[in-house]
Nucleic acid binder design. Structure first.
Lengths: 161, 161
DNA sequence: ATAATTAAGTCAATATGGCTGACCTAAATA
DNA sequence: TATTTAGGTCAGCCATATTGACTTAATTAT
């Protein structure tokens, strides 16, 4: 007897089709990070520096704790990267209202680097989206959002409030 | 004078919206790799091992050269990972028709690991896609494909021929 | 007022996954 | 026969992450 479940699986839920998505995620993410990576390399920084600069630029008066909760890395990992960014004056630290905390902001230099790096990715995405209609784009956004785990959806919502 | 270009930018091409996509790509990719990573850790493997197993499983009689052209890493980087997989009998090497080349195939053990790892990602994607209609899914796939650089699109097409 | 918790920082060791450069062998091709 | 190709290996380096242990200063709870 034929496997009715299999016969009834819609085309887009076929394993073959889903594996294509797995591969596209791998290829697209790699290509997506390639541009900034090349720029960062020239100044002896890595992708981790971009992430820090990105979220510090996004969120004004971000604290270390909040940054750690976005990046989900240990403070020891963050510290190396952050110390470099502070030493080289891309990021400025100041004491928060709660004096145990620190506020992080981008310096002019930091803002310029942030712009330079993110612009590559923004342009890439904009050029892609221009080829599609609003329906396709909505599908893309909604599904991408749904690919994020519940806890991180909350984090995403929080930083985009 | 107001910047007409900015006023005319459709909502979905706004920088704010595009930055959301940047963040969703970061969060979703991280969550996407988390499941297999945990399984791999238990057997002292990493994400690189998964990639190798994935593509060896996909393409029968893959050669080292072809694998390198998919992964885009150096042969020295591949060698460490691949040697472990061969030593621990997940992958079997044999001589190709061109006797300089080697064919890579998954052993039973390798197939089982491949299944276990990819199943996590397949289920995750399937559960997500189930919530959407075909139009949304098409938008997602098409845009993801368009996010891949031209050269890698060719590679993707090649392995899905 | 004191104790407990929190935010941040630091030191040390370890793993993974990349890289470059140099060099080798064997087989296929020009 | 000479050159190119596929694959392998040694050595060293770098970036990014981890765990564990411990410190300081400030806030909060008892």
């Amino acid at each position: 007897m034929a496997d009715l479940n299999k016969l009834l699986t819609p085309l887009f839920l076929n394993e073959v089709e889903i594996r294509k998505i797995i591969e596209l995620l791998f290829f697209s993410y790699r290509d997506f990070t390639e541009g900034p990576d090349k720029v960062l390399e020239k100044i002896n920084f890595g992708r981790a520096h971009h992430r820090v600069i990105y979220f510090v630029g996004k969120q004004k008066n971000l604290t270390i704790k909040e940054l750690l909760s976005i990046l989900k890395i240990t403070k020891q990992s963050l510290s190396r990267v952050l110390n470099q960014l502070v030493n080289e004056k891309y990021i400025i630290l100041s004491v928060g209202e709660d004096k145990r905390t620190k506020k992080l902001i981008l310096s002019k230099k930091g803002q310029e680097l942030e712009r330079r790096l993110s612009e590559i990715q923004i342009k890439k995405i904009r050029n892609v989206l221009l080829k599609f209609n609003e329906m396709d784009i909505n599908g893309f956004k909604k599904i991408l959002y749904e690919m994020v785990d519940v806890k991180n959806k909350e984090k995403f919502d929080e930083i985009n409030r």
